[in-house]
């Protein structure tokens, strides 16, 4: 995976330590990681740079993770979004419909195994662009 070191990732979570954990995991995989603690900060970062994959917390202080995924993809249609949540389960209708609509391409619930994160990233990177 180191070959793809050019890939840029975005991590959005209002918990700074959660941003730290995800950026460590992803950084060790050889990717450049940008973190944001709100949807607004995430959009601002996306304005400047294009991200291949974004890991979004489902509950952000300003906008829902699913809504942020929609906005990010409207701005940068190539960005793949993975939702991470401590509140929702993968059988939640909100998640199911977001997956179906393609605004997110994966879901991870907290707490997670770090291999789940790596696996979701790989899956996102190889997924066809919609």
């Amino acid at each position: 995976m180191r070959k793809r070191s050019a890939a840029q990732l975005l991590v959005v979570d209002d918990e700074r330590d959660m941003c730290w954990a995800l950026s460590r995991i992803l950084g060790l995989e050889g990717f450049g990681v940008t973190t944001a603690v709100s949807a607004r900060a995430a959009m601002a970062a996306a304005e400047k740079k294009s991200f291949q994959v974004a890991f979004l917390d489902a509950k952000l202080p300003d906008v829902d993770g699913v809504e942020l995924a929609r906005r990010l993809r409207r701005l940068r249609p190539g960005t793949k979004c993975v939702l991470i949540s401590g509140y929702l389960y993968d059988d939640d209708p909100v998640i199911q419909s977001a997956l179906k609509q393609g605004s997110i391409c994966g879901f991870i619930s907290k707490p997670f195994h770090i291999d789940e994160v790596v696996h979701a990233l790989r899956k996102a990177l190889v997924a066809p662009k919609s």
Binding site: D17, F112, H113, I114
Partner: peptide
């Protein structure tokens, strides 16, 4: 219960990093 999940997720991720990844002393 959900509120506990965040610190648990962080602790768990950090522990997994220690166990499965080669890390420098500072990390």
């Amino acid at each position: 219960a959900h509120e506990v999940r965040n610190p648990l997720a962080i602790s768990s991720a950090a522990a997994q990093l220690l166990l499965t990844r080669p890390l420098d002393r500072a990390t």
